[in-house]
Write a protein that binds this DNA or RNA. Sequence first.
DNA 1: CTGAAAGCGCTTACAG
DNA 2: CTGAAAGCGCTTACAG
Lengths: 330, 330
Amino acid sequence: MGLARTTVSRVLNGQPGLKTKTIERVQRAIEETGFVPNAYALHLKGKRTATVGICMENLLTPPIVRKLALLQRLLRASNYNSLIEVVEPGNSDKVIRHFLSMRVEAVVFIGHFDEDQLTRQVGELTTRATPHLVIDHVGIKGANTVSLDRVSAMAAIVKHLIGQGHRSFGILAFNSPVRSVTDRLRGIREALAAEGLDFNQCTTALDGIFPRANDFAEGRRIAQAFIARGQLPTAFIAVNDEVAIGAMHGFQEAGLRVPTDVSVVGFNNMDICLMPTPALTSIDQRIDDTIKAAMEVLLPQLGGAARPRPVVRMIEPLLVVRGSTGPARV
Amino acid sequence: MGLARTTVSRVLNGQPGLKTKTIERVQRAIEETGFVPNAYALHLKGKRTATVGICMENLLTPPIVRKLALLQRLLRASNYNSLIEVVEPGNSDKVIRHFLSMRVEAVVFIGHFDEDQLTRQVGELTTRATPHLVIDHVGIKGANTVSLDRVSAMAAIVKHLIGQGHRSFGILAFNSPVRSVTDRLRGIREALAAEGLDFNQCTTALDGIFPRANDFAEGRRIAQAFIARGQLPTAFIAVNDEVAIGAMHGFQEAGLRVPTDVSVVGFNNMDICLMPTPALTSIDQRIDDTIKAAMEVLLPQLGGAARPRPVVRMIEPLLVVRGSTGPARV
DNA sequence: CTGAAAGCGCTTACAG
DNA sequence: CTGAAAGCGCTTACAG
């Protein structure tokens, strides 16, 4: 049809200086043949990939998936593609390799990973001048980080409960070596100390008895174990909303009243907090603000401005008080 | 270092006929330089992309995300990468274009989309000899489809309730033009007809009064509306588990007993079914089996075996009976 | 305003 | 067993 590849290329890239007629001719030809440019040829010859690699811990826990969904939407609004990969145990290096081979312009980690591995990977990305951002996993050396302040979250809970007169606390399903959990335990410990209370003295955990599932059934079982044991704390702090609601049920089935007899607090402020009666007091992660902050950290780096030192932004959690917490029984 | 690109290429691809010493030398050089092959050059020159494009309706509703998570895992186990894209209203053509430019070896649709658009896209993929699979969205002409049999699901529910003596049914939050919902309404209608009952006579819906949210609060509000109206049906069929649980709460708060006064059925059999008291009767989508079937349909096509005509596999739902349904009040 | 030529970084016949 | 050359499908100077 007498069209040079050069001309076609120019039309596709909307470059100026073409006759309208030529443009139309090219566009018609493209439509007729159903031509779709080969992305691999495109990016081989200089064109930027405009792709961000997103490395996910999993796709099964709602808060994590929600972060992904929001980030993906904002990235697209800024004309970036997302390359989403889920880490299987042990293959996180493979994921990073894939990202690098796809020449992503940045890598974002969402969730919790092996600490040493993540540190090494952040180091490698930095060496290669590929920007990165770690969402959630706090304390990685040299890493740009945006994360909920989990220590602060637990302080808010403990303060709220102490303000209601509680002095004995049940800890529900915190038996995990994961950083987010240990941070939260530390938050509880420090908040208690700030009020002159000793963690070991005023908290009880019966987690170890059950396999960790972090679900409704586990919460109920732990509550039952607490009841069977006697000496009930007046307030319960759960690893997440599911466990908290399960515990509420366990208590209520045994004839205890929430919050008259026991107060219960969850974590994540998911929709399910409204399901039990009374509704569950919980911590809101402010995921929208987290991802907004993530974009603020990410975009300048995508622009190529190398940071002299890592940016760390902590998101302040929001305690949402509902009916499941109240004054301690005297 | 005296290494030909050819030799390096051979090492990377594990081709036979190289001296062990050479292989080691190459591998050391690769480690030292941190070399990662450029995927764009790789696939430009013939190498297959081993990538499947997954077009998602959204990343916010749990069943859909669960399908994605499982599919992605199985694809990786079969050595395929997943390229995941979320459709924003109106950009589904852009997604397909991106997939094509990335030379994906197949496209999988998960969720519900605009029917005409999806039909056209399936047609285009077929023309281009790019295999496809539609998960969930049933009734697309020419499409390879794997989907829950929603008509059958509703039949199971209706049969179960009729067996318990119910003859009047409340329909909760089915006011949507989406194919999955209209299919389910048809399922109810047909199942009633099979028992000699007329849909219009024995069902009531008060959905239109509220903005559709499909959540807990909406379920509660609809239940309250039913109570305010009087003439309560004895059984309620909800669009999903959230609405069902909300309705249960609405009824229970008004002093009605479940299932003594009203039976309630959900849909999806999510973990939250265990949260209300009594636990919620629901339909399990059998997502694991759905995705297993999806792989069975997909893999042979990825192998290049062009199907003479589209494969359609319907997954039989599983009714999980719990305490929220019981004999009709007489 | 449009076209012919070089080059991106690999793989794959083809020589040696 | 290893290397030099062509070519994948684009973009980008450079000519015309």
